[in-house]
């Protein structure tokens, strides 16, 4: 079918039970989230938000590590929890993951080669040893590594940047349609970060691989992605093309976030001051009705404390969940 999306997330909700000593409760880590990524054209979609926004939970849901409380995840139109065994194997091949800590993904006792040979064996990508070697050197070349630099070495002998590139090479081996990348550069030094982001851009343009890029860092989101979703406490606040959302944000929360990103230029320092909360908004005092950002919002209205705003289509390709725009 031609009009199916690559990934479609429908009313996705994930509730975790919190078993505190003092309180028992439920935390809605992901709260009725819907979005999609197109099939026809490779795109990089950023899922941005602060800690506790639910962005990593969405990644784990899409990768099938955890089951949604309600809602669906469709891959090319098929519900990932209703797939046949064959469909699931294909899904696991076509949707790959890269994580924040490029050290944790390696077994320190094994040479890094193993990370590349295992998927070849598991998914029977090569018919001979020779073919396997060719695949590996192609994949390493694509991510800008030379075989003799990295093969035969142990993880601790490589830099974080090299290790993260090997993880991208590993994902590339499987010719995926989508890579879910959860904070892939946040532990990488600045001088090496740019080259990892450039590898992502290359994989998109040359090999038609889409990315779901999960990050708290809006500057790298601007650099690498086409579209962005900004989340707050489990809900989407704003969604649209990155060049619009990050340049002219609509939602007061997104405005506050962007205003707080430090500009790397001493001549453009913050002029106004911000006040941090004097005492914390704890999960108990969380807005159960109304807008989740209500307690912190500078433009709040009476309505906002009572009615939760829907994610509404306010411009051609932009969506905002805020009563100011409804």
């Amino acid at each position: 079918m031609e009009n199916e999306n690559l990934i479609e997330v429908n009313h996705l909700t994930k509730v975790f039970a919190s078993r505190g000593v003092m309180s028992k409760g439920q935390i809605k880590a992901v709260d009725d989230v819907s979005f999609s990524m197109p099939q026809e054209k490779p795109t990089i979609l950023t899922l941005a938000g602060e800690s506790g926004s639910g962005k990593t939970t969405i990644a784990r849901l899409i990768l099938g590590f955890i089951k949604p409380t309600s809602g669906k995840i469709l891959y090319q139109g098929r519900d990932i929890w209703k797939m046949t065994k064959d469909e699931w194997v294909r899904y696991r091949k076509e949707v790959q993951a890269v994580f924040q800590d490029p050290y944790g993904a390696f077994n320190p006792l094994h040479k890094v080669d193993r990370v590349l040979t295992i998927p070849i064996r598991k998914f029977k990508l090569a018919n001979s040893e020779e073919e396997a070697t060719d695949l590996i050197s192609e994949a390493l070349g694509v991510v800008g590594l030379k075989t003799d630099e990295v093969l035969g070495k142990y993880p601790h002998q490589l830099s974080g940047g090299q290790r993260q590139r090997i993880m991208l090479a590993r994902a590339f081996l499987l010719k995926p349609k989508l890579i879910v990348a959860d904070e892939p550069v946040s532990m990488i030094d600045a001088s090496l970060r740019a080259s990892i982001l450039n590898v992502m851009l290359d994989l998109k343009s040359k090999f038609s691989i889409s990315f779901l890029y999960i990050t708290h860092d809006l500057s790298t989101a601007r650099y690498v992605s086409d579209n962005i979703i900004v989340m707050y406490l489990g809900s989407i606040m704003e969604m649209g093309p990155v060049d619009k959302v990050l340049v002219k944000p609509l939602h007061p929360y997104v405005k506050l976030l962007i205003d707080s990103v430090p500009v790397p230029d001493p001549e453009r320092r913050w002029k106004n001051r911000i006040e941090l909360p004097r005492i914390e908004i704890t999960s108990q005092s969380l807005q159960t009705r109304g807008c989740k950002f209500y307690p912190r919002c500078s433009q709040r209205m009476e309505k906002c404390s009572k009615e939760r705003p829907d994610l509404a289509n306010v411009e051609e390709d932009r969506w905002v969940a805020c009563h100011l725009y409804q």
Binding site: L192, R193, A194, L197, N198, S219, R222, Y223, P264
Partner: peptide, 16 residues
């Protein structure tokens, strides 16, 4: 180091 910093306000090609 300075030219490798991505900026939210402008899109320029970064070189590692």
């Amino acid at each position: 180091l300075i030219s490798a910093i991505p900026s939210i306000s402008e899109k320029k090609k970064l070189k590692g």
